[in-house]
Simulated assay, not measured.
Amino acid sequence: MTALHEYERLECTGLWRDGPEGQRREVIVSFGDATLVIAETKSGRALTHWSLPAIVRLAGSSLPARFAPAPDADEELEIDDEAMVAAIAKVHRLIEARRPHPGRLRSILLGAGLAAVLGALVFWMPGALVRHTAASLPFNKRQEIGRMALADLTRLTGIPCAAAEGQEALARLHGRLLGPETGGEIFVVPEGVDRSVALPGGIVVLSRSLVEAPDTPEVAAGEVLAADLGVAEADPLVALLGNAGLRATLTLLTTGDLPQRAVAGFGEVALQQPAPALPDKALLDRFASAGVRSSPYAWSRDPSGESVLPLIEADPFRDRTPERPVLDDTDWVALQGICGG
């Protein structure tokens, strides 16, 4: 049924004519099953039935309202009853809502596609731009940005320890573990760092406690190796640029320069960011290739040994001595005193 149940008994009077030259007659207008019934006022005899879906309202929105059974029909009906006019309009709205709208699905799909594109621009593009920028920078620029990050970090850790003999020992430790051709530097800071922090440009920052408390340089060496390995899992330059923001990243990408203010506050991020979880196999391979025992590092990480058992039991030098010591005794003593002179 097209007509609504609430209008099944709705009636009113109206003026109807059967053609342009016909005389207007007073009629009774009522809702039928799917039609508007126009009947004589005295006899009640139906004069015509108009299909509700086909009825059109002629020009004008004021009362009395004029209707026709079709756009090109000769008949015309004039109604001044507001309830009947509203009922016809409501039926038309219901019919329009139920009618298929081929373009509506296209619009919905287009809107969804645009929303997806905008979502990609908002959520994916900044991260992609940061990763692209980080991957495209040469090492010397990464090292320059790493130095800027170190300067910001020293607000929280203090100036890196700088005893001359200790710095020479650090340089030899870096060459021993990472190779002189790789670039980068190792720094020891007096406070604020629990273990180690990796910064862009191959810069590794070590806690003072790592060189003063252990009996062997292998603990500090293990932290350097783990920090260097972790860079492959979580590039610190990506974290720095993500903190700096899209505008600073675009400036770096287009001009090759990163303003110092863009690095402000990264020290807190670097200290609070947890170190990436490294697979035991990758760590053991790294220790083996560097010629460093893994068990001293493991015991320093967890004195109970429970969480680092593979690094202890599978120590590549558990039953043999590395070909070269991490540092000789003189350098080790110098490194232990780097913050005291």
Rank of each mutant, 00 (worst) to 15 (best):
E6I: 08
E8W: 13
E11I: 12
T13R: 03
T13P: 00
V29P: 14
I38G: 08
T41W: 08
G44F: 04
G44V: 02
A46T: 14
A46R: 11
L47W: 11
W50G: 00
A54L: 05
V56W: 15
R57T: 14
R57M: 15
S61A: 07
S62H: 11
R66G: 13
R66C: 14
F67Q: 15
P69C: 12
P71L: 07
L77R: 09
I79C: 05
I79E: 05
A87W: 01
E96D: 15
A97G: 05
R104Q: 13
G111P: 01
G111D: 08
L114G: 08
G119A: 13
A120C: 11
P126A: 11
G127P: 14
A128L: 14
L129R: 14
H132P: 11
N140T: 09
R142L: 06
A149K: 03
A149D: 04
D152H: 04
P160Y: 08
P160Q: 11
G166A: 01
Q167N: 04
A171S: 01
H174P: 03
G183V: 00
G184K: 01
E185K: 03
I186A: 00
I186T: 04
I186W: 05
G192K: 05
D194T: 09
S196M: 11
S196K: 03
A198K: 12
P200C: 07
G201I: 02
V204W: 02
V205C: 02
L206F: 09
S207N: 07
S207V: 00
S209T: 06
P214C: 07
P214R: 10
T216E: 10
A220K: 09
G222N: 05
L225R: 02
A227R: 04
L229N: 12
L229G: 14
G230Y: 00
V231K: 08
E233N: 10
P236K: 09
G242W: 10
N243Q: 15
L246C: 08
A248K: 13
L250R: 14
T255N: 09
Q260R: 12
A262F: 02
V263N: 03
V263T: 04
V263K: 00
G265S: 07
F266N: 06
V269T: 08
Q273W: 08
P274C: 03
A275M: 00
P276F: 12
A277E: 08
L278T: 07
L278W: 12
P279K: 11
P279I: 02
A282N: 04
L283G: 03
L283V: 04
L284P: 01
D285M: 00
D285Y: 05
R286Q: 01
R286V: 01
F287Y: 00
S289C: 04
V292R: 05
S300C: 07
D302Q: 07
P303A: 15
P303M: 09
S304R: 15
G305P: 06
S307V: 03
V308R: 06
L309S: 09
L309Q: 13
P310F: 02
P310H: 10
I312C: 07
A314Y: 05
F317Q: 04
R318V: 02
D319G: 06
R320P: 06
R320C: 07
T321Q: 00
E323Q: 12
P325Q: 13
D329E: 11
D331A: 07
G341R: 15
